[in-house]
């Protein structure tokens, strides 16, 4: 059973011995429950280690502690809650999310997330994971758009973060490959490229102010370089548990936070502008393996 690899790797790590008993108890149900993730040959920390071994990057290596903690990533448990939630019949229509198409057919999650954002025929729009979940909740399950299940986007306890983490984990270790075949996918990616370079706001910043060079720090944080694929795949590997926030965070949360720090306007959740940015940033990581779930400082 390949999923057992998640625990086996810890035996090689002497620093993890203390928690071995706890891990033995905890990891087995995780491995069983997340059986659908077992297709990924390497756990997230090994995907990251592979990148670290392949390139000299101050960003990837900035937190040895996080790397050691990744087998115990709290996001794994958020994802486990997400699995239950995904397969439970919910909402006024009393159906599960299995009826929902994330791009590879109803209920098919393996590799779906690394091919998002993508164009969806049923809505005629390019959607990222979060906006697609909103669509499924409102259109398939019948939730009102103001229902807390739909509205609450942030925090490990939110339905959104549980579902996003579970769905994303089914793409761990796979290469980012958002499709650009449909004209709308290409248009959104290209608009995202413009937005990435667009300087505005009180401080004249664009995304490259922080993400155009390697090994630079804002205060103590080493920044990922958007032009280096090995850096960038980790940078965009959301959901990730943010240690400093003590919560699992999403791509949408990251984009909102960047615009906030740039002293630009508050981003509307799931706006087409946010999806354009995410389309472009996914394209920048194309071909690099996703680390899902990740752990960040």
């Amino acid at each position: 059973m390949p999923a057992m690899g998640w625990t086996a790797t810890n035996k090689d790590n002497p620093l993890m011995e203390v928690s071995m008993f706890k891990k033995a108890l905890l990891a087995l149900p995780v491995a069983l429950a997340l059986g659908a993730a077992a297709h990924a040959e390497k756990p997230p920390e090994e995907v990251l280690q592979g990148l670290i071994d392949s390139v000299d990057s101050a960003y990837l290596t900035q937190s040895e502690q996080n790397l050691l903690m990744m087998p115990d990533n709290p996001a794994l448990w958020v994802g486990m809650d997400g699995e239950d939630l995904f397969h439970t019949a919910r909402g006024p229509n009393n159906v599960s999310m299995e009826a929902c198409d994330f791009g590879k057919g109803p209920g098919v999650l393996e590799g779906a997330y690394v091919e998002m954002p993508r164009y969806f025929e049923d809505t005629g729009k390019v959607m990222d994971l979060e906006t697609r979940i909103v669509h499924c909740m409102t259109e398939v399950q019948g939730f009102d758009k103001d229902d807390p299940a739909v509205k609450q986007r942030h925090g490990s306890g939110s339905d959104h973060m549980k579902l996003q983490t579970y769905i994303a984990m089914q793409s761990n270790g796979m290469e980012w490959n958002n499709p650009l075949d449909h004209p709308l996918e290409k248009a959104m990616r290209d608009a995202g490229e413009v937005l990435f370079a667009r300087r505005a706001g009180k401080a004249d910043f664009n995304c490259f102010a922080c993400h155009g060079q390697s090994g630079k720090q804002v205060r103590a944080s080493v920044l990922p370089n958007a032009t280096v694929g090995e850096d960038w795949t980790k940078a965009i590997s959301w959901p990730a548990f943010r240690v400093g926030h003590d919560n699992v965070r999403s791509s949408q949360h990251r984009v909102r936070g960047c615009y906030y720090q740039m002293r630009q306007a508050g981003m509307k959740a799931g706006s087409d502008a946010s999806i354009a940015v995410i389309s472009y940033w996914t394209d920048l990581a194309r071909g690099q393996p996703a680390i899902l779930p990740d752990m960040k400082r």
């Binding site: 709308l184 248009a187 290209d190 608009a191 413009v194 937005l195 981003m267 509307k268 706006s271 354009a276």
Partner: peptide, 23 residues
């Protein structure tokens, strides 16, 4: 969206899409 240039679309997404702009 496909009828616009990338710059036009970026400005549209910022200031007009999603009911009064994406922000």
């Amino acid at each position: 969206y496909t009828a616009m240039t990338p710059h036009e679309l970026a400005e549209y997404l910022m200031f007009e899409a999603n009911g009064g702009g994406g922000f």
